[in-house]
Structure formats: structure tokens, C-alpha cells
Simulated assay, not measured.
Amino acid sequence: MKKIYFLSVLVFFLSVGLFAQDQKWSVEANYPISVGDELGNDTPAILDIGLKYRFLNLNKVKIGASINTGYFRQNHNYSVNEESFDFTETHWLIQPKLFAEFTIPSIQKLHPSVGLGYTFTESKNKGIAFNEPSELTRSPGGLSFNLGLSYDVTKRFFLQVQCDYTRSTGTVEGEGYTENIKDNLGFVKVGVGFRF
């Protein structure tokens, strides 16, 4: 089954690559590393995927819109002073933004970019906390700022690094309480992409 799935994806990207000449679209896969406030209990990243569309070409600058989705997950199992904790923590980040991508005339393969958007977060802790069943949810969000740099390996494939900063505000809702939160989320994303 995995071979059929891989072959289908490969055929799709090859056919898109052969027939699309303007390269207005790109897909990317990144690994985000947290460098700001902790996301929950400093939950590690699984993957960040993105889709970009460049709708305006001004020769040295391309203007576009993009959306990225990041997934973070960790299982916790520990005890403190006879209190046991056994829960799963998950975070989904959805980041739509507008961006400008630049071409440097002397280095055609290097493309710096800058973006402005919003980050929506869906966080959930579910399991056992303080020896009791527990479930916490929160949905903070905030304006985000993005700096990026990509390098063309070929005409279609590229490597990239991005830095995202989000000033996130929201509330944590648990059983019997609500708490306001403010976080300065920061991520360095390292990944690859494909233009079509």
C-alpha cells in the first residue's frame, strides 16, 4: 500500500512539474524548532507543511499568499509527590499569511522573503492529572511575522529556512477554571519545497 501511495504522489508531482510552466505554486515540508516561549510543556514538533501561491510578479519581487499547518505532540507519564500524570498533549498551528519573495540579481538561486499573517492554535491535554481524569483545551492566536530564505537546488526543488514570531493571546479552559495567557511563540523552520 505504501508503494502505491508513494508512486501516486510521485506521478502527481512529475505531471504537475511537466505541465506547469509559470511556477506560481509551491508546496513545502518543514521541521519547526521552538525558540520562543514553550508551546505547552515544550512539546516537540512532528511536521509543518505549507502551500504558497504567488499572484503578482514584479520582476525582482513576487507577492503571494500562503498557509502552513504545524503539528506538535507529546505523551507525558510521570509522578510528583504521589500525584500521577499520564496525558497526551497536542498542538495544531494554522498560519495563513501574505508574503513578498525577492530575487537577488547577483545570486539568482537565493530568495529572501518576508511575511505577515495570523497564527491560530488549537491545543489539547487529555488524560490523567493529579490522579484524576482531566482535559484542558485552549485556542490562542495572534499576529505573526515571518522571515525566510530559500535556495534553489534545481528549477523546481529548493531548500529553505524560516523564522516565525507570534504574539499569542488566549485562555486556558479546564474543569472549574479559566486562565488568560500571553505567549511569545518563536519557531525556526528548516525544510524543502517544490515549485509547480
Rank of each mutant, 00 (worst) to 15 (best):
S26D: 14
Q95T: 14
D152T: 02
S15A: 14
V9W: 03
E135A: 09
M1N: 10
W92I: 13
E38S: 13
T88C: 00
K97I: 01
E122C: 00
G191P: 11
S34D: 02
E122P: 01
S66I: 12
P32F: 04
I128C: 02
F99V: 07
V9N: 05
G174V: 10
L185Q: 02
K182P: 00
G148Y: 09
I67G: 11
D22G: 10
N41L: 08
G64F: 03
R167G: 08
V161M: 12
K52T: 06
T88F: 00
P96G: 00
S26A: 07
Q162T: 13
K60I: 12
A65E: 05
N184Y: 05
L58T: 12
W92M: 10
I104T: 01
A45Q: 04
D37M: 01
V11G: 04
L7F: 11
S8N: 14
I46H: 01
A100C: 06
E179C: 06
Q108Y: 04
S168K: 03
G17E: 11
L116M: 12
G186T: 10
V35P: 01
N131I: 11
S168C: 02
A129K: 09
E82D: 14
L147F: 15
G148L: 04
Y177V: 05
L18V: 04
D183P: 01
M1R: 11
G64S: 07
R138M: 05
P44A: 04
V11E: 02
R195P: 02
P140Y: 03
E135Q: 14
N81F: 07
N75G: 09
R167Q: 13
G174Y: 08
N77Y: 04
A45P: 01
Y165P: 03
K189R: 13
V190D: 02
M1S: 12
L10D: 05
L147A: 14
Y151W: 13
D183R: 14
G174W: 08
G36I: 06
G141C: 06
